[in-house]
Design a protein around this nucleic acid. Structure first.
Lengths: 224, 224
DNA sequence: GGTCGCTTGTGAACATGTGCACAAGCCCGT
DNA sequence: ACGGGCTTGTGCACATGTTCACAAGCGACC
């Protein structure tokens, strides 16, 4: 259904959510039209990249005018699959898991938290926002009942691989991993990992080598 | 002092922390030597990439044998500047800020949290781990006294730009931004942004287009 | 209806990153 | 001392990503 004519490059896919975020802001401020230059400013990129990225979605701009904000935000949401309101589960309810569970941004941008789970039986029943912590043994039935497609791992590193295996066997095929571990999963499972310490260490490198080369970077989005 | 002979490519810099993490594991299990193949497995990459990456650090391997774990972990730590035990500050102590503040991984990997700050005066004095929340007005003096070089922003999006400005004017030149906002800073300030919703949305794309192309990716590390 | 100013969409040059494949070099056993 | 097995380091071809620069096209105004 929402197949795009050409395949979209990974680098562009990583930036689409940033455009989506900026366009939503514009919507809120009642802007109807936006140029590639303005959108570039909002996304922290340059105009050429914006135009090339958007061109992979098809021809949605008007020369001499710009892009219609509402059309474009809808087109990007469609492409990213945000219209499906994916149910997600979070496993590992420590400080980070709790923070993720109560992070308002998720529900506002195409996702809803179907359940929060933890392997520690002492935590079972503990409230987290509107939800109660459930034991990991219930994962399979939750996934099946709610049609969960995306799982978030917020456990310590040593539990992550086990949890990933449980997710995969429960039918989850997209995993967002916040633990400092490299996950081994079947080829048809997508994994994205965010390691907080890694991010700091990259910054540390550029801080350390400041005189050699000043650099500003944004993860996966190739910002200036 | 620790200048490397050639400039290290960004893609490699983003992977060095992952090697460092894997090597530390090996150290703990008393391994003295590791091949590019084994290290690749640990980092979720392929051996060719590992060898090329490490070659930018100089010639530290032994043909027919592999790399000396201890030498290599030290060399990478030196390159990343992890030996300096950077003091960092966290601004914005909501759920996420609290999670970051109590995240053990930081102290274990080259950073120490010098202070946690929040703009809300009602939170001042509240304990977070060993620290107490301080008002943002104290940022400048903290930065000067402790020599803080790296700041972490964990505020809501609408406060992020203001906080970033305060950090820059206080003398911070490396910022790790967890808010969903694009920060505008002077050229000589490095920014890395992690937007949790963006990560989910990227996963959502690949989930949505699953039939077109199975994909596994790891942020900024180019894993298979 | 024609012209002018503005902005898109994109071909082509350039830059960066990846993977292959193999020579160079080290260790060990004989 | 020498040969065999193994692993590094890297040149080179290929793939992906970025930027430039400009023709094409739209809208507005005369």
């Amino acid at each position: 259904m929402s197949r795009s004519p050409r395949r979209i490059p990974d680098a562009t896919v990583a930036r689409l959510p940033v455009y989506h975020r900026g366009l939503q802001e514009l919507l809120r401020s009642r802007r109807t039209t936006v140029s590639s230059d303005e959108l570039a400013e909002l996304a922290g990129l340059n105009a050429a990249k914006v135009r090339k990225d958007l061109s992979y979605l098809g021809t949605y701009g008007t020369r001499g005018v710009g892009y219609d904000v509402e059309t474009l935000v809808r087109r990007i949401a469609l492409e990213l699959g945000l219209t499906e309101n994916w149910p997600v589960v979070i496993i590992g309810i420590g400080n980070l898991g709790r923070a993720l569970a109560s992070y308002g941004g998720f529900s506002a941008r195409g996702f809803r938290i179907a359940a929060v789970l933890d392997a520690d039986p002492r935590k079972t029943g503990e409230p987290v926002g509107d939800l109660k912590i459930r034991p990991t043994a219930e994962l399979r039935s939750i996934v099946q009942q709610e049609g969960v497609a995306i799982g978030i791992i917020a456990t310590p590193g040593n539990a992550a691989q086990r949890v990933a295996g449980e997710m995969v066997s429960a039918g989850i095929r997209s995993i967002l991993n916040f633990s400092p571990a490299v996950l081994v999963v079947p080829d048809d499972v997508a994994v994205r990992s965010v390691d907080l310490a890694v991010e700091l260490q990259v910054l540390s490198y550029y801080q350390h080598h400041r005189d050699d080369s000043p650099v500003v970077s944004m993860i996966g989005t190739g910002a200036r």
